Amino acid sequence: MLDELIVILTDTVGVPAEDIGPDTTPEQVELDSLALVELSVALEEKLGVAITERELKDLPTVGAIAELVADRTGRA
Rank of each mutant, 00 (worst) to 15 (best):
I65T: 04
E4H: 13
K46W: 03
R54F: 03
V49G: 05
D58G: 05
L5W: 14
A17I: 04
L43I: 10
L68G: 12
R75L: 14
M1F: 14
V69K: 06
V13N: 02
L59S: 04
Q28N: 10
S33A: 14
V13Q: 01
S33L: 08
R72K: 15
A76Q: 13
K57G: 00
L36Q: 07
A50P: 00
A70V: 04
G74L: 13
P22W: 00
V62W: 02
V69S: 10
L9S: 10
I51H: 14
I65G: 02
V7G: 09
E27T: 14
A64G: 09
R75N: 12
A42V: 04
V15K: 05
T52L: 07
L59T: 02
D11F: 02
V69A: 08
D71V: 07
V15T: 15
L31K: 09
I51N: 13
D11R: 12
E53H: 06
T25C: 07
E44Q: 14
V41W: 05
K57S: 14
S40V: 10
L2S: 09
I8H: 05
T10G: 06
E45T: 13
A50S: 14
A17T: 05
K57F: 12
E18Y: 00
A50R: 08
E45N: 13
L39C: 07
E45S: 13
A70K: 01
A42H: 03
Q28C: 03
E67M: 03
D71Y: 01
V13S: 02
E30Q: 10
A42F: 04
T10R: 01
E27M: 08
G21Q: 05
V15A: 09
D71M: 09
V29Q: 08
G14M: 01
S40F: 09
I8F: 08
A64Q: 10
T73P: 03
P22Q: 11
A70C: 08
A76M: 07
E67A: 11
V29L: 15
D19I: 00
K46D: 13
V29C: 12
E27I: 09
R54W: 00
E18R: 04
E45C: 04
L68P: 11
E27F: 00
T52K: 10
A64R: 15
T12A: 02
A66T: 08
I51R: 14
R54S: 07
G48K: 11
S33P: 07
T10I: 01
E30R: 11
E27V: 13
S33Y: 02
V69Y: 11
D3T: 15
E53G: 04
T24H: 12
E67L: 06
